[in-house]
Nucleic acid binder design. Sequence first.
DNA 1: CTGAAAGCGCTAACAA
DNA 2: TTGTTAGCGCTTTCAG
Lengths: 374, 374
Amino acid sequence: MTAAEKHQVSRSSTSHAGRRRQGRAGIRDVAAAAGVSITTVSDALNGKGRLPDATRSHVRAVADRLGYRPSAAARTLRTGKSGLIGLTVTTYGEEPFTFTEFAYFAEMARAATSAALARGYALVILPATSRHSAFDIWSNVALDGTVVIDPSDRDPLVTELVRSGIPVVSDGRPAGNLPVTAWVDNDHEAAVRGLLDHLAESGARRIGLLTGTSTDTYTRLSTSAYLDWCERVGQEPVVEAYPAHDPAAGAVAADRLLARPDRPDAVYGLFDPNGTDLLAAARRYGLRVPEDLLLVCCSESAVYAGTEPPITTLSLKPGRIGNTVIQLLIDAIEGEGSARPVEQVMPTDLIVRTSSRRRPPRTTVSAPRGPSSE
Amino acid sequence: MTAAEKHQVSRSSTSHAGRRRQGRAGIRDVAAAAGVSITTVSDALNGKGRLPDATRSHVRAVADRLGYRPSAAARTLRTGKSGLIGLTVTTYGEEPFTFTEFAYFAEMARAATSAALARGYALVILPATSRHSAFDIWSNVALDGTVVIDPSDRDPLVTELVRSGIPVVSDGRPAGNLPVTAWVDNDHEAAVRGLLDHLAESGARRIGLLTGTSTDTYTRLSTSAYLDWCERVGQEPVVEAYPAHDPAAGAVAADRLLARPDRPDAVYGLFDPNGTDLLAAARRYGLRVPEDLLLVCCSESAVYAGTEPPITTLSLKPGRIGNTVIQLLIDAIEGEGSARPVEQVMPTDLIVRTSSRRRPPRTTVSAPRGPSSE
DNA sequence: CTGAAAGCGCTAACAA
DNA sequence: TTGTTAGCGCTTTCAG
């Protein structure tokens, strides 16, 4: 084969003598078909350079006709940006993504996905551990940045990511002094204080706490805020703790709390299922809610609007958090690494429902009671 | 600069004369530091070739010491595999991922993520539409395959993906004759027949259906199975339909169904929130469940185990579906495209609870009733 | 305004 | 057994 022949062949096909006819059209194919250079094709398609509109639209038409799709891999290699953001939850160990269990994760992830997409990025769901299966999936995907939900103390994953130079933003303030790029968290202490005040205003004399045995920041901050509040108002703390991972344990702990001799007349439950469990326990002990027992739990679940009675919840606004996390991360990615970490504390929402109102409005009580209590 | 000098420089640094000192170590840096060639480094790290164990471990040690992370982008470009699988839900329009609303998506996505990770792939969450923001995010990420949940008729996204040669597996059978690589779906007709039989066995004389107004496959198949069943047993159909997207409409429809002159003594609701809505409606009309009204709805939500009374649900087993979808997709990706499409129909589970049992067992009734009925 | 050429970092033939 | 070389498909200076 002469040089000329070779040249001709590599023009019409994709370089290697004539084979690989089935593969998608490449940028050279488009260039050849449009009668321009590959540079012009690239510029035309990316809106770079200053080509005449005629050339631009011609190239686009040809590309369309050939069904040309630029190779993301090549673009990533060349530009160093993949448009991909990792998302992981490290709290609850191996199993990837616990969003089934907690509405918080679902909403947070949804908002984060949405926010990322709006800025041209996509989320990749990754496992909590660095070494998952045979080979490390983390280093198999080109990430522009990573969101870590609830990083644990001295999380090795975070450390490694940061060391390898990729921005990391965490949902939940990092516990040890993890070198995250930025973090977003709720003001858990203010939230607990606020809701305890609300319960006290509703007439609570002795407020109990249903908390977890683990040492994550959320549990720790919330519990100590409760203890501080008790000390401030001079109430003896009434606390039951259980391993939050275990859903069955929650029901038992709820029961235990209401079985105590110093039974509280109001309870705050830190975790999503606590409301249901407490309500069931109250029913078993013949306690009316809210007359005999005021109830609040931290949850994003919609079910608490429909229980009997509806239960007051503390919402952490996970959607807002997910969105903020993504904004900070993308800012860091695109801002060429702006040195000092950003910390953002966000407010919570107490959604007050019947379970924590001492006197529910007459109207809603009498109307539905008619047909239901036969 | 002489050729020799140039050679020397490009050995010690990363190719271009001495600059770019801050970037992560590349494969050449490792090769230089270990005193071997880059091929040897590549082989040692990937377990390819047949190097002496000494070399292998030496190279690994050096790579570790330098904090070497291989470039996923380069690997992807070279090998043509990214290890990335797209995940999208097209049913409910623009908004990416509706997993907040339906426990089905959450569980399906969780299982899919887990299954993919176990085989060395990660999931990327992508929007339903091809043209999302300014530029097309779909063509900005290198995908080895895609999972599409509930593709709509002649989905342009699916068509385009398939045309560009990437395997697509759908959760839910494709409606038009979309050219998906494979699909997985429940046997919705058998499920509906089974649950109607169950209701009839529990004593139902007139079973109503709460369905949707949209024409997706699930709604269509379930509704027609209901109508067929009615015809077979000689019951006049009692149907109320509402736009399933609108949560408020569901409650209204539930109410309408129980307000009819030909009020059913049993109801099946096709969508997740129907159980709660029907229960509320029943209460409003003074109907006891299950004594006056038998209830079943299709849902993955755990709340139905805790309602008063617990409600029988039809589970589509989304976890199993998510897992199967991923297996089929990865098989297609790694199996070099095995021609003919694979169709997989999977069974459902009817989780029978109090709401559809005419006579609940004595034991579970008397024990808890003690403390609760003061 | 357009084209040629140089790689991005890696893997896989092919040589040595 | 190890090293050399040729690209994967694209973007981006830098000449024309």
